[in-house]
Write a protein that binds this DNA or RNA. Structure first.
Length: 404
DNA sequence: TCTGGGGTCCTCGGGCCC
DNA sequence: TCTGGGGCCCGAGGACCC
């Protein structure tokens, strides 16, 4: 299989190009920026179409932010200060107080995400959705896809996406998904990189292990303990050694990944497994002392999950909660009920039962409600296993069921 | 001045059934 | 009758990703 990996880059405000910009913090809408502009700069009427005209000095700065929150993403200029995704806003403010802080506006991102994927689907229909700004594409059967090793198609995708959305995107081209994802990192933003099977030793092996999609901070730390820092050093370990230290599944995968091997197909359709809502409180809450407040939040979360399920047409039967305590320890509890539901009161009730199974002496920082084991709401039930024919019945069952 | 929200997948242990 | 094993489901936790 030949794979593309494409991810879009977000630059909504051309006037901020080259400046340190971070997106993160409390969830807000761009509309609020427009409202504030109209209130504070009434010399003209501002609309969402005027984003490019907003004066740079009008944007809020990191140093003015108060409260809990993390960086969702950061511009390259901001990264030069050592700022990165998932960093606390307070820490980022120390590194670069003058950085511009933009609100997170997921509704807006989803709009652009859909447009970006629609453009791709029209050109290359075998597309796997990997989140809000990333996709894999199998272009083996796209007409002209092989021209210049994929570069012609990559350029076409970039131009079509830019025309339709105004967004730039980086593309990696490689024999499989693993390498295509790594290739896309080589030339950001708005770049195209092609990695061939024979390039693994020269282009991939010098990289740190963390660059492999699937090696996170924990695995990386364990690898480092064994003196493995680069992908090449990982590739140099024998598979049995990796299996001994990382288990049969993980160890074998590490070995394959280090050699650039990946057989996973591009998956064009998938059903959701669970839906959840969670929230971090402005201050830590105590189960007894803040009972009323917690109860209200709990109910609201259940209502939000229920609304999500109903809007998307799903029902589920595993209902659960997630707690994060003030020491950042996480506890989850869930319970599977006999019937599928998307009813807010039922979800709230079962989630409440789950909550009773947790020691609530510590203060809480986060509360979440989750519904899993989903199926589509309209779908007929397949609860009954298919009646087996006589020969496949087990010895134990044969007597009791054969009469039916 | 730490550390969001919404997901997926994997592992492991326990209980149950055959 | 007792014991053991395999398969499956469930629940809890962990790692990782965008």
């Amino acid at each position: 299989m030949d794979a593309f990996y494409a991810s879009v880059e977000w630059l909504r405000y051309p006037q901020l190009k080259g400046l340190p910009v971070v997106i993160g913090g409390a969830r807000r809408r761009e509309d609020e920026l427009i409202e504030r502009l109209n209130a504070e700069r009434p010399e003209r009427t501002w609309t969402p179409a005027d984003l490019a005209d907003i004066p740079v000095d009008f944007f809020p700065r990191l140093q003015d932010y108060v409260g809990r929150g993390v960086i969702t993403t950061a511009s390259y200029a901001a990264r030069a200060f050592g700022i990165g995704s998932a960093m606390g806003l307070m820490k980022a403010a120390r590194l670069c107080p003058q950085a511009i802080l933009l609100p997170v506006d997921f509704a807006e991102y989803r709009k652009y995400s859909r447009a970006f994927k629609q453009v791709i689907l029209e050109i290359a229909p075998v597309m796997e959705d990997r989140g809000i700004d990333e996709v894999y594409i199998d272009f083996s059967h796209v007409p002209g896809g092989q021209r210049e090793g994929g570069r012609v198609l990559a350029r076409l995708l970039q131009k079509s996406i830019l025309d339709a959305t105004g967004l730039t995107c980086s593309v990696g081209v490689a024999p499989n998904k693993l390498l295509a994802k790594m290739a896309s990192e080589f030339n950001k933003p708005n770049g195209i990189s092609i990695v061939h099977e024979g390039d693994v030793q020269t282009l991939i092996w010098p990289l740190p292990c963390r660059k492999i999609n699937g090696i996170g901070p924990k695995t990386d730390a364990r690898l480092q303990e064994h003196g493995i820092h680069s992908i090449g050093e990982l590739a140099a370990r024998e598979a049995p050694w990796l299996i001994e230290h990382f288990g049969p599944s993980h160890g074998a995968w590490l070995h394959q990944a280090a050699w650039g091997r990946d057989e996973r197909p591009v998956v064009t359709e998938s059903e959701p497994v669970s839906m959840s809502r969670e929230t971090t409180f402005e201050r830590d809450l105590h189960a007894v002392r803040d009972r009323a407040e917690l109860g209200a939040i709990f109910t609201e979360l259940a209502e939000q999950v229920a609304a999500d399920l109903q809007r998307k047409g799903y029902v589920g039967k595993t209902i659960g909660i997630k707690l994060r305590f003030d020491d950042f320890k996480i506890a989850t509890r869930d319970q599977t009920v006999p019937e599928y539901t998307s009813d807010a009161r039922r979800i709230r009730q079962v989630a409440g039962q789950c909550l009773k199974r947790v020691d609530l002496s510590r203060r809480l920082r986060l509360l979440g409600v989750r519904v899993g084991s989903l199926r589509q709401a309209g779908e007929p039930l397949h609860e009954q296993p298919e009646a087996p024919d006589g020969e496949s019945l087990s010895l134990f069952e044969a007597q009791s069921t054969s009469a039916e």
